[in-house]
Computed example of a mutant assay.
Amino acid sequence: MRADAERLAGVLKAFADPARLRLLSLIQSAPEGEASVSDLTAPLGLSQPTVSHHLRILTGAGLLERERRGVWAYYRLVPSAISAIAESLTPPRKQPTKKVR
């Protein structure tokens, strides 16, 4: 369906940026499986506004969840979104053909 293809294209566009891939990896490997902007700026070598911009795009694409705690926002991966990308890029398995006897 066209709408599904357009949604997937938007998600893949958000996913395709190298800095965003690194963000996803850093968040996934964080001890609690979540991180704040301040946890991510130094490892990426990017400014806080740049990291926030990338996180906003990933959240908008449905790849991250954001939870506000006081003045901090924490981000975590949405496993179902990551699985959906993998599934959409994996060719369907062929069903074994049945032999007719």
Score class of each variant (00 low, 15 high):
Ala81Phe: 00
Asp4Pro: 01
Leu40Gln: 11
Thr59Tyr: 06
Ala16Gly: 12
Gly33Ser: 01
Gln28Gly: 06
Arg56Asn: 08
Pro49Ala: 00
Arg56Lys: 11
Thr97Ala: 11
Trp72Met: 15
Leu26Gly: 01
Pro96Gln: 03
Leu23Phe: 02
Pro18Ser: 08
Ser25Thr: 00
His53Gly: 09
Arg93Trp: 13
Pro92Leu: 06
Met1Gly: 09
His54Leu: 00
Arg56Cys: 03
Leu26Asn: 04
Leu26Pro: 08
Ala42Ile: 10
Leu21Phe: 06
Pro91Trp: 13
Ala19Asn: 05
Ser52Asn: 10
Ser88Thr: 08
Val51Ala: 02
Pro91Val: 02
Lys98Ala: 15
Ala9Gly: 12
Leu21Cys: 06
Ala73Phe: 09
Pro43Glu: 04
His53Ala: 14
Arg101Trp: 12
Leu64Gly: 05
Leu21Val: 11
His53Tyr: 15
Arg68Asp: 07
Thr59Val: 10
Ala86Gln: 14
Gly33Trp: 02
Glu34Val: 00
Gly45Thr: 10
Leu58Glu: 03
Asp39Tyr: 07
Ser88Phe: 07
Glu34Tyr: 05
Ala35Tyr: 00
Gln48Asn: 15
Ala14Asn: 00
Ile85Pro: 01
Arg66Leu: 01
Gly62Cys: 01
Asp17Trp: 01
Glu87Val: 11
Pro31Lys: 09
Ala84Lys: 00
Ile82Val: 14
Leu77Arg: 04
Pro91Glu: 11
Ile85Arg: 09
Arg68Pro: 08
Leu12Tyr: 10
Gly70Phe: 06
Ala86Ile: 10
His54Asn: 08
Ala16Asn: 08
Gly45Tyr: 04
Asp39His: 09
Leu46Cys: 08
Leu44Phe: 10
Leu64Ala: 07
Lys13Ala: 14
Pro31Trp: 06
His53Arg: 15
Ser80Gln: 13
Leu58Ala: 02
Ala35Trp: 03
Val51Lys: 04
Asp39Met: 02
Ser80Met: 12
Arg76Asn: 10
Ala42Val: 10
Arg7Asn: 11
Leu55Tyr: 05
Arg2Ala: 12
Arg76Val: 07
Val71Phe: 15
Leu46Asp: 09
Ser83Ile: 12
Trp72Asp: 15
Arg20Asp: 01
Leu64Cys: 05
Asp17Asn: 12
Pro91Ala: 14
Pro96Arg: 14
Ala3Leu: 12
Gly60Asp: 06
Val11Thr: 08
Ala81Glu: 04
Val11Lys: 12
Arg69Tyr: 05
Ser88Tyr: 01
Arg2Leu: 13
Arg56Phe: 06
Gln28Asp: 07
Ala81Asp: 02
Glu6Arg: 15
Gln48Arg: 12
Leu58Trp: 05
Arg20Pro: 02
Ala14Gly: 05
Trp72Ser: 14
Ile57Cys: 10
Ala5Cys: 12
Glu67Gln: 14
Arg68Thr: 10
Tyr75Cys: 00
Asp39Ala: 07
Thr50Tyr: 09
Gly70Ala: 14
Pro79Lys: 01
Ala73Glu: 11
Thr50Met: 08
Ser88Arg: 07
Ser47Cys: 08
Leu44Val: 04
Gly70Gln: 10
Glu65Ser: 14
Pro49Met: 05
Ser80Tyr: 03
Ala19Trp: 07
His54Gly: 04
Leu8Ile: 10
Leu24Glu: 03
Ser52Pro: 00
Ser29Asp: 06
Leu21His: 07
Ala19Val: 07
Thr97Ile: 09
Arg2Pro: 13
Arg56Trp: 00
Ala19Glu: 04
Val11Cys: 13
Leu8His: 11
Ala35Pro: 03
Arg20Asn: 00
Pro49Asn: 02
Ala86Lys: 09
Leu55Thr: 01
